[in-house]
Design a protein around this nucleic acid. Structure first.
Lengths: 146, 146
DNA sequence: TGATATAGGACGCTTTTGGTCGGGTTTCTA
DNA sequence: TAGAAACCCGACCAAAAGCGTCCTATATCA
């Protein structure tokens, strides 16, 4: 339940990968797909969407590829996820129009909206720079889980 | 993205409905389904699952029905959602086994697990008693949104 | 001019979701 | 004690979403 799509996972991985390289360097869809064993065509389309969302800059042609449109600490996980999975709504109740197809006496809408906001805030606070490989603190926590 | 299923919505509504009645009173699946225009058979199965999860107590027979197994401030939204939608995992990366089918150099797992925990905490803090109809504070907020 | 990229539409397979149908069992009550 | 009213539960179906592939077009560079 309430799971990010695999595509959003892929996108986060790819963005993190780009964030690990020095600014301006560009990687091709193939480069990234190979590193993480993601189907190349799938990743290609994800990167295209991230580009259209203004999070990446693309360069066509030989030795082309993608690079971050902004510094890695100025791109949030929320932006990446939203670009791929669409707007964040925890419940079908909450839509872009704010409507609810159930009866008006539905009072669970408002508390759930607050949950929604919390999730959005947490994801917004999480920057690409927080995901980098050389985050030793995260590494240690990770290992301790096994 | 990251949406609760309609069934979880239904379940929350039903639980809230039961929470609004004085303790011990039991409502039938039909009663609740009619009030919120939920397909009766769908709701019936949801209530059965909530019963198996220990959140409801069922009474068969004429004038039977369901009642909360605990006080409304001792049942969290998280429990209801988990009973219906299954365990909460924000990403396909995080499974019950803690495995990850991507490469080991996947460092986004740990930060996402923290997001996961946050969502779980927020939902756990939300009790059925917080969802009740006569929560005037929530009411006011709701109206102010229009 | 050919190789290497991005850009993007069309399709198909699989899983999930939302819902129905039909047949049980339990309990109350007339 | 029969039947009505409720819970219980598996099987099934249709629609939607998710995931991936194929194919073609376009841009850029050596």
């Amino acid at each position: 339940m309430m799971r990010l799509t695999k595509k959003a996972d892929y996108a986060l991985l790819a963005m993190k990968c780009l964030a690990e390289h020095s600014e301006g360097v560009s990687l091709s869809a193939k480069d990234i797909a190979d590193e993480y064993h993601i189907p190349q065509q799938v990743l290609a389309k994800l990167l295209q969407r991230l580009t259209k969302a203004g999070l990446l800059i693309s360069h066509a042609g030989t030795h082309g590829g993608y690079s971050l449109a902004r510094a890695s600490d100025e791109i949030s996980a929320f932006e990446v996820i939203r670009a791929i999975d669409g707007p964040l709504f925890i419940t079908s109740c909450i839509t872009v129009h704010g409507e609810c197809d159930l009866t008006r006496s539905c009072t669970i809408k408002e508390p759930l909206r607050r949950v929604n906001d919390t999730i959005r805030d947490v994801l917004s606070a999480m920057r690409l720079s927080d995901l980098r490989e050389n985050d030793t603190e995260a590494r240690r926590e990770l290992v301790s889980l096994r």
